[in-house]
């Protein structure tokens, strides 16, 4: 399947492509770790398998946070201060959620 993207359009929306690449990397690594972990579990490797699965889940968990961070960096680079600030607010709220959630 070939989807033609005009070059000027590519330059107009770089953020989508950067984020897409980041999310694809995150889901591929997570899927690979999960698949190997589950396969080992089925084969009876009960020590290593849960560790690999947990690693896969953690990679997946980190991906959205990394995605907001990457967006923030891109907005700062583009001097789009409004959206850089919005991304920062989101990051702080997520961090605070983790901090308070752990205490409960």
């Amino acid at each position: 399947m070939v989807v033609a993207i005009e070059p000027e359009e590519k330059a107009e929306h770089p953020i989508e492509l950067v984020l897409a690449r980041l999310l694809r990397l995150g889901s591929l690594v997570a899927a690979a770790l999960l698949a190997v972990g589950i396969a080992l579990m089925v084969l009876g490797q009960t020590v290593l398998a849960p560790k690999l699965i947990t690693a896969g889940l953690l990679v997946l968990l980190g991906t959205p946070v990394l995605r907001v961070t990457a967006a923030a960096v891109i907005f700062v680079k583009e001097r789009d201060w409004h959206f850089a600030l919005f991304s920062l607010v989101v990051l702080c709220a997520v961090a605070a959620g983790i901090y308070f959630g752990k205490g409960m």
Binding site: I38, I53, L57, L58, P64, G97
Partner: peptide, 19 residues
């Protein structure tokens, strides 16, 4: 993501179910 981190820290995410 923030909810999931909290569940992880509490040990509610069971690898063999969630995997």
């Amino acid at each position: 993501a923030s909810g999931a981190v909290v569940y992880f820290a509490r040990g509610d995410v069971k690898p063999l179910v969630a995997g």
